[in-house]
Amino acid sequence: MEELLEKLKGEIIEQLNLEDVKAEDIGNDDPLFGDGLGLDSIDALELIVLLDQNYGIAIANPEEGREIFQSVQSIADYIEANRN
């Protein structure tokens, strides 16, 4: 799990062009949207692309993303639960 969390942080920074952010700046449970990293709706869609391309997990309804993308931890949990 620890490894997945670190890998995810790196992937998120790269996919979302968060140039000023380092992996160690992101707490596992920090909120990604709103006050946290300040991500927006397009970032949420990019995260859906990331899960699809890197983990083979397809999310059909963007509304589902709200729950899944709360934090790096919640994304990792979702990946663990849905990876075959």
Partner: peptide, 11 residues
Amino acid sequence: NKKSPSPAVFV
């Protein structure tokens, strides 16, 4: 050409 085109590029 990719499986999922990037929305961040399209915008």
